[in-house]
């Protein structure tokens, strides 16, 4: 892929049209995570930190195999570890690579008030541009996956870039390159959906995972990171993957109807008092007649 994939098609907090709006390449990029073959080795975590040039941070041991409780501003990628007991009593470890899902309808971008702080490229990558970020954390409120993380010192928010810098140069994301089991794949969305469908049907036909399926939630227009799960009916078991994620209703109300209502009301208010002045004029302090008291 060439630099052409980094044409911008949506911009946060932007007044007026966006140059690349409605453009859609014949292939959107996509990362496929087959959790059924993830062994939790965390090579992807290390590759992510390395590529993005952050020092490795302290880990927090909580009697599980998880590196730390949550993503951090300089830790975009975390293997979530969960112990799971299925209905038939069998026990399993669920490992899920957690990071930004690069939603087709990104709540973070919808919520962001700063012009250009969040952009969506025509290949589907949602990218934060820290130099335009004002640190309001509206994106934290808008994201249905709880992804963006705030750096208290710089007051900027960070998250997985899907290695937009590598992808723009025709490379695959660092995590993909590092994965030793081949549980991570990267390519066009169509190709990844095909591959995921093949894998899911393989699981359904040849293993005990009769509910294996693809996680590509339609509530946010689909995502540019998709999962193959052992049990598509229970995404919550994988460290809180929401079943039907959507941009929060209140965020949608706040960003669309309430904006227009408010703008209209404020304009009407200002015009109203001007009209009132023209019609009725000032209340002069003239005493009509002496009202004795």
């Amino acid at each position: 892929m060439s630099n052409g994939t980094l044409q911008i098609k949506a911009i946060s907090g932007h007044a007026g049209p966006v140059p690349g709006r409605d453009t859609s390449r014949d292939y959107d990029v996509c990362k496929l995570i087959d959790v059924t073959t993830c062994i939790g080795c965390k090579a992807c975590e290390v590759a992510c930190v390395e590529w993005n040039g952050y020092p490795f941070r302290e880990t927090v041991f909580d009697n599980t195999y998880q590196t730390m409780p949550d993503l951090e501003w300089n830790y975009y990628n975390l293997i979530r570890f969960n112990e799971h007991i299925a209905e038939d009593g069998t026990f399993s470890w669920l490992m899920r690579k957690d990071q930004c899902m690069h939603c087709a309808d990104p709540g973070c971008l919808r919520a962001c008030p700063a012009d250009g702080a969040i952009v969506q490229y025509s290949n589907g990558i949602v990218d934060f541009q820290q130099e335009h970020c004002i640190g309001c954390e509206y994106c934290v409120t808008g994201c249905p996956f709880n992804i963006p993380k705030f750096n208290k010192e710089t007051k900027k928010v960070h998250k997985c870039t899907l290695c937009s810098d590598r992808v723009g140069a025709g490379l695959e994301p660092a995590c993909i390159k590092a994965c030793p089991t081949g549980c991570l794949h990267f390519g066009s969305k169509d190709d990844m959906k095909d591959l995921a469908a093949k894998r899911a049907s393989q699981l359904r036909e040849h293993t005990a995972y009769k509910n294996a399926g693809i996680y590509d939630p339609p509530g946010v227009g689909g995502t540019h990171v998709i999962y193959v799960l052992h049990d598509i009916n229970n995404p919550e078991a994988y460290g809180g993957l929401p079943k039907d994620p959507r941009v929060p209703l209140l965020v949608r109300v706040w960003k669309r109807p309430l904006k227009w209502l408010g703008n209209l009301a404020m304009t009407a208010g200002v015009l109203g008092v001007v009209a009132h002045y023209i019609r009725y004029g000032p209340k002069e302090a003239v005493e009509k007649k002496e009202t004795p008291k």
Binding site: P248, L250, V253, Y277, P282
Partner: peptide, 30 residues
């Protein structure tokens, strides 16, 4: 998100009152 919505509604209500207040203080009641 409820906090943002509340903040915005409360702000809009005070803005409506504020427009009238400034108009009366500066123009309507010399």
């Amino acid at each position: 998100s409820l906090a943002v919505l509340t903040h915005e509604c409360a702000a809009l209500i005070t803005i409506g009152a504020f427009i009238i207040h400034v108009y009366m203080g500066l123009f309507l009641v010399p």
